[in-house]
Design a protein around this nucleic acid. Structure first.
Lengths: 228, 228
DNA sequence: ACCTGAACACCGTTCAAGT
DNA sequence: ACCTGAACACCGTTCAAGT
């Protein structure tokens, strides 16, 4: 609370005029991040091009906010929800309703709606937690579990403002990070982990963007197959 | 630290003989949970029945430890890793090596190995975080974000010991939870969320076990399709 | 080798008081 | 309506001392 207050140029106690507890503030952070979808023109535009286009735009919108806030995404992913069927990363009743209604209008029956809802959520949750996790590695300098971004000393890169453009987010894939300047093979014990050692370079250099797109296509195919 | 010490009948400071920092202790918790795979006879038995059988047993082993420790799984899922390509829930070099070697022995080439490794991890991560999240709902009594298990006042059900049997873990799906005793439809505003309202019962009653099995089959089919 | 008690800096939170 | 300063209970951690 004191750190947040400091960031805002205010004493910690002032925050209690706006949030009655630390958990309430964390919930507000999660809501703020997820609500970026509401202002995402690429997501909000209608579903006139069919459910595949709609789900694809929704998925990319979620990915945009996840990559814009890689340190907040674990919060989005793990904060307890109000009901067992309210699943991250689509955490809000209004977006769940939005998705289910759009698909219902496209002719999905109840079983197909539930299948699409759950497989869509668990796909995004797993893939984006994996991808953002790769951006928030353990700091090799300080031995504790604090976060650090690759190649910057800013403790909260991106911060809370959705300032990153699509191109900036995508550039994470292509831009050379400090880790790539070293040979990742050198870090792996060839005797204990021969297969990892031999694959070290391929494991280190990865193009999350392309993989996301093709995994999303496969997911949409699975949903389509469910429609008979 | 004081709470952990209390649970062990010891002062908090005694823990510092075994872990030099709180983060180190949390890492040890994660390692303890993941290491249950090492003692899981259903997972360790050889890969003589092919890679599909191996990956299926591995996936079910991960699900067993996740369901045995639903409160620790978010830690497994989100603690920063040592390298970007060390992904939860398979977090350890030895299990990554184990998986890659087994698949390599089955004839996977490097691209196929990487595809299998990443799609397998992100599938398990997303699905199991969703499933364990449904077990650790927000406590409606205390307004804060603390955890509570459905239907028990034990703050850490299951605790750290891998005491739950397979049948007990599965029974989560079938057993009637308090939430099911109420009509979930009553909680949803019919005017604001008509589609959710109409699907409330189906959303609330779910059989994670069956869904996991069929989603896993689809994943293995995706991997198989990659083999040409 | 493992545990303890007192102590330190720090954190979330309360409250009475300021503008 | 919003902020502040001092204060409280609590937390992670250190250290010198115990067995």
């Amino acid at each position: 609370m004191r750190a947040v207050g400091n960031r805002l140029g205010v004493e910690a106690m002032s925050l209690y005029k706006h949030f009655s507890t630390r958990d309430e503030l964390l919930d507000a952070v999660v809501e703020l991040v997820v609500t970026e979808l509401d202002n995402d023109r690429l997501v909000r535009s209608g579903a006139d091009d069919g459910w595949r286009d709609y789900l694809s735009r929704l998925a990319h919108g979620v990915r945009r906010y996840a990559l814009a806030h890689p340190h907040a995404f674990p919060l989005v992913a793990t904060r307890p929800a109000e009901a067992p069927w309210v699943n991250p990363p689509l955490r809000s009743l209004s977006w769940i309703e939005n998705m289910l209604r759009t698909l219902a209008d496209e002719g999905f029956d109840p079983d197909q709606l539930l299948f699409a809802y759950r497989s869509f959520n668990s796909f995004l949750l797993g893939y984006l937690l994996m991808e953002t996790g790769a951006l928030t590695l353990r700091d090799p300098q300080s031995g504790d579990g604090s976060f650090s971004a690759q190649g910057t000393s800013d403790p909260v890169p991106g911060g809370l403002d959705p300032g990153r453009t699509d191109a900036e987010a995508e550039s994470t894939d292509a831009a050379a990070t400090p880790a790539e300047l070293l040979d990742p093979q050198d870090d792996i014990d060839e005797n204990r982990y021969p297969v990892i050692h031999s694959l070290a370079r391929e494991l280190a250099e990865d193009h999350y963007g392309d993989e996301f797109d093709s995994a999303l296509i496969d997911l949409l195919d699975r949903v389509a197959a469910q429609l008979d």
